[in-house]
C-alpha cells in the first residue's frame, strides 16, 4: 500500500513538473534571451554595454512596480510581494534554528545537572 501511494504521488509530481515546464516554455514571455549580445565584444569594450534600460525581470519590476504595489522601496516590494514565499521560508528557518538551539543547549544543561548529581 505504501509503495502504491509513493508511486502515485511521484507520478503526480512528474506530471505537474512536465506541465509547469511546458507552461513556462510556451506561455511566459521571454524578457531577455541575450541573443543580441556578443560576449567577446563586451569583453573587449565593456563600456559599449547599453545601460539605458534594465534587462529581463528587472525591467518589469522597475517599470511597473509603482502601478502594481505603490511601494516606494523596490526591495521591500520584491521581498514581500514578488518573492513572498521566499520570505516565509526565511522566517521559518529562524523558527527551525531556535528549535535546534533549544535542543542543543537544553541537553547541555541536563548533562551538567546529571554530572552534578554524580559528583
Amino acid at each position: 500500500m505504501k509503495k502504491v501511494i509513493a508511486l502515485v504521488s511521484l507520478a503526480a509530481l512528474l506530471v505537474a513538473g512536465c506541465f509547469a515546464m511546458n507552461y513556462s516554455y510556451n506561455e511566459v514571455p521571454i524578457t531577455y534571451d541575450g541573443s543580441d549580445t556578443s560576449v567577446t565584444d563586451l569583453y573587449k569594450d565593456p563600456k559599449s554595454y547599453d545601460l539605458s534600460e534594465p534587462d529581463g525581470v528587472a525591467d518589469i519590476i522597475v517599470k511597473t512596480n509603482l502601478e502594481q504595489t505603490m511601494a516606494a522601496n523596490n526591495v521591500a516590494a520584491v521581498v514581500f510581494d514578488y518573492r513572498g514565499f521566499d520570505t516565509i521560508g526565511e522566517s521559518f528557518i529562524l523558527l527551525a534554528s531556535i528549535a535546534g538551539s533549544y535542543a542543543i543547549l537544553r541537553s547541555g544543561k541536563k548533562r551538567k545537572e546529571e554530572h552534578a548529581d554524580e559528583a
Binding site: Q68, T69, M70, A72, F80, D81, G84, F85
Partner: peptide
C-alpha cells in the same frame, strides 16, 4: 495570487500605508 499586494489604493506614493499589505507584512516579519 498568494502574497500579491492588495489594498494599495490609499494615499500617494511614499505615504506609510500606501503600499498596502507589504507594509503590514513587513511589520509582521
Amino acid at each position: 495570487r498568494f502574497c500579491q499586494n492588495v489594498f494599495f489604493d490609499n494615499g500617494n506614493v511614499g505615504d506609510l500605508i500606501s503600499a498596502g499589505t507589504i507594509t503590514f507584512m513587513s511589520f509582521a516579519v
